[in-house]
Design a protein around this nucleic acid. Structure first.
Lengths: 341, 341
DNA sequence: CTGTTAGCGCGTTCAC
DNA sequence: GTGAACGCGCTAACAG
């Protein structure tokens, strides 16, 4: 069924080795023969077998992408960026989704899945266990994290502490003193430190400004809209005075807060300012103030680095902070000058 | 570096053939030897080489997934579902994203990418050209579409016409007579017929109810929030009376309409009812009335079918309509009884 | 510049 | 129930 390299060789009246060189653009082939081989291969509809060349060369021209979810804003966009540069360089993308941050056992991917199957691995916002890291490093394939730091390997991401600090300071700068916080990280995420980085930054910035951290105004979520709604409801139902602003660890949660506020007739930003991190596709249309980051650029950068490493350039893979910026829209404003109190 | 099947064979004092059978659970191996082989393989950390077994067997245990985008609601969720069943069955998922519905040239994937690389292919909401279909069918690998019909091959999706009809009738049933429509399909999507199916259904339902189709109230978008905002603005800026309801081809667009309405102080649903299709993650929190569909179930079903086909069950791959349902929330209500007019 | 020759690691008849 | 041997299609030295 499939026409092989030998068929092409026979028809072009050259050896298989020559066909191989010609097709791969290697030197040591005269332009005449190369042209001829190309023509014959084309006419015969020849397509090389990845399995065969993989076996022979030891390289699969495929890089793996390990993600906790594919159906979430950050990951979908990051994958898109990765796919672009991979495809542009003739590499394939093998996707491994965990379908959620799993706990314990089911994560035995490393040893069996990675092996001999991919030339490099991109780990998206996933904390790997020490054991998993050990296995991965043991296989000597280039490894990079995207979206957050992973102990022991380079990565591409924003400075989450700085980003959270910037958002918090924006709120404080507007005059807010009673600020709530919806953070991610409610579940087992292993060594994935992004949620913690943002939380610590928020707390430190508040302290530095001499503002009080009210535990009941700091609620955990999982970065989704649904959790934003839940978290907001939890805070809104508290007795006593409400915060005048809420900072959220993700735009999805921030949008959830806005939806819930609307439902309860709490006006944003007049009565409540809301800020997030991401610049989700919905944020512009919804008028959400946020710290913008570009996951697709993270993906492109990371993919380019592993490809560089695979191409032989040593130390292509290294830590890299990506840019982020405060985008002020309509969800934040100075607090109403409290009249009654 | 890698321990091969021969190493295991030597250590277990059996032949490579026996190791192969034992590891793959084939018959003709005594339980004693099987246990021994398994133990040895385990202790040596043996992992079979996909390239080698692929070359030898002609099967790669990998299925390809072709998508226009990975960073859009429907696709992300569908991929998640596909990944689940693939992984549960020991198959890999090779992702091919077009990064948008491309026009013409750059879509020469079929011939070169698919070949010898995957055992089956899932095409997500993508119209293939006749040439592409021809090539794909020529390779004899199982092929299925997900999310919309593709001429010449089976698929898994909802009855889009029925869904659009249901939404339109919901609006009409509430008493609306001036209904606008934001549809997808502004770009070149080849033979991908979903946008057209929904549009025709809307038009027919309106006509059947004796309602007028106002061309200026039917604007095209690309299924995104941003386009929803744009489309809504276009309609809102029209001179004369506004529609009392707008039906959107996707929830993202519907949410965009709601955002834009809010910005202009147009109250939803009092002054404007809005309905969509999808049941996007944001729809519940935002209170959007919609026709709900479950893309992850589509993905699971489609993946199961190609796997069935690969497992030898003939005709596993066939047309399949998935369920959908009207979910009424707070974005739709009867129109205000027009006082002035 | 080009051809020859080994494997790469595993599946798969066949004999035994 | 088990083993020997060949071949999958291609790359990678070496020769020439």
């Amino acid at each position: 069924m499939g026409v092989s390299i030998d068929d092409v060789a026979a028809r072009a009246q050259v050896s298989t080795a020559t066909v191989s060189r010609a097709l791969r653009g290697l030197p040591r082939v005269s332009e005449a023969t190369r042209a001829k081989v190309l023509a014959v291969a084309e006419s015969m509809g020849y397509v090389p077998s990845p399995s065969a060349s993989g076996l022979a060369s030891g390289r699969t021209r495929t890089v793996g992408v390990l993600v906790p979810f594919v159906d979430r804003w950050y990951f979908g966009h990051a994958i898109e960026g990765i796919d672009q540069v991979l495809r542009d360089n003739g590499y394939n993308l093998l996707l491994f989704s965990l379908g959620g941050y799993l706990h314990g056992q089911k994560r035995s991917f490393t040893e069996s899945m990675v092996r001999k199957q991919i030339d490099g691995l991109l780990v998206l916002s996933l904390g790997l266990s020490d054991e998993e890291l050990r296995q991965l490093h043991h296989t000597d394939i280039p490894l990079m994290s995207v979206g957050g730091p992973v102990e022991g390997c380079s990565g591409v991401y924003i400075d989450d502490a700085a980003a959270a600090t910037m958002a918090t300071e924006h709120l404080i700068g507007l005059g807010h003193r009673r600020i709530g916080y919806l953070h991610g990280g409610v579940q087992d995420e292993r060594n994935f430190r992004v949620p913690a980085l943002r939380t610590v930054a928020f707390e430190e910035t508040m302290s530095r400004a001499g503002l009080e951290l009210r535990p009941e105004w700091m609620v955990a979520g999982d970065f989704t809209v649904a959790e934003g709604v839940r978290g907001a409801a939890k805070i809104f139902e508290l007795p006593g005075e409400l915060p005048t602003a809420i900072f959220c660890g993700s735009d999805e949660m921030a949008l959830g807060v806005i939806f819930e506020a609307q439902r309860r007739g709490i006006r944003v930003p007049e009565e409540l300012s809301v800020a997030g991190i991401d610049d989700h596709d919905f944020s512009g249309p919804a008028g959400l103030t946020t710290i913008a980051q570009k996951p697709w650029e993270h993906g492109r950068a990371a993919a380019a680095m592993v490809l560089g490493e695979l191409a032989g350039k040593k130390d292509s893979v290294r830590e890299r902070f990506m840019p982020f910026e405060l985008v002020v829209r309509q969800s934040t404003a100075p607090p109403r000058t409290s009249v009654g109190a």
